[in-house]
Design a protein around this nucleic acid. Sequence first.
DNA 1: CGCAATAGATTGCCAGTCGATATATAGATT
DNA 2: AATCTATATATCGACTGGCAATCTATTGCG
Lengths: 115, 115
Amino acid sequence: MNGLNPELMRGSLDLMVLSVLSDGSKYGYLIQQRLREASDELVDLKAGTLYPILHKLEKAKLVRSRWDETTGRKRKWYELTAAGKKQLGHRVAEWQRYVACLKQILGPLADAAPA
Amino acid sequence: MNGLNPELMRGSLDLMVLSVLSDGSKYGYLIQQRLREASDELVDLKAGTLYPILHKLEKAKLVRSRWDETTGRKRKWYELTAAGKKQLGHRVAEWQRYVACLKQILGPLADAAPA
DNA sequence: CGCAATAGATTGCCAGTCGATATATAGATT
DNA sequence: AATCTATATATCGACTGGCAATCTATTGCG
C-alpha cells in the first residue's frame, strides 16, 4: 500500500475487493492489478493481504471460487454470490454514511484542502 | 463505536481527535462527548481507545497536555501543538485523497445508494 | 448512603496487515 | 541451456491497534 496512509485503508479493503468483483469474475492476481489501475496506483494490495481477504469472503459465502486449469496457468476465479452482491450494496451505503459522518466531524476543515 | 462498522473507522480515529481539538483545548472526557455529538452518536470512542490515542499523539508532539487541579475535578487538558495543526492539515488532505480514491474504485456503485 | 455520571488510565485478547518465504509455470533475454 | 522476470496462489510470523474489562477516584442527585 504505497500512495496513502495504510492505516486509513484498513477498513475498506474488503469493500474494494467486493467492488472490483462486481463487474465480473476475476482471479486473485487480476484483482490486484485492477485495483492498482482503478486507484491510480494508490492501492497496491500485497498477496499476503489479498488472499486472506478472499478466503475470508469465501468462508462468509460472499464470493465463490473455482479453479481453471484448462489454460496452462492455474488460476482460481472468484465471483460474487447473491449474498455478496447484497452485502456490497450494504457496504457501499455504509461507506457513504461514514464519509458524511467524517465530513460533519471535520466541519470547516473539510473545505480548505492544503497539501 | 456503535452506529457504523468499527473496522471502517479504525484509520481515522487519530484524525477525528485532532479535528475535535482544532477549535480549542479539551480534556479526554470532553473530546469523547464532542465527538459523539459531532457525529450524531455514530462515533462513541471508548476510554480504552481514546486515551492510548491521546498518549500516542502526545508522544509524537502533536498535542501537549497539562493537568488542571484548580477545579475539584482533576482534568488533563490537551491542545494541538504547532506541529499538530500542521499534521491535521496533512491528514485532512490525505483523507480527501482517500475518499476520491474510493469513489474511483467504486465507480458506478458510488452513485446509487440503497440501504 | 448508594448510584450514576464524570474523569483518567492500564492490561490483555483478538483481528488484521504485510514482509518474507515457498512453490510453480510462461515468456524473454543471455 | 541457463537465467531472469512476471505471473499465480498460498501460508507464516511479527507487529500494530482497537476495545472490553478493570481499576481508582470524585461529584452530584435522590
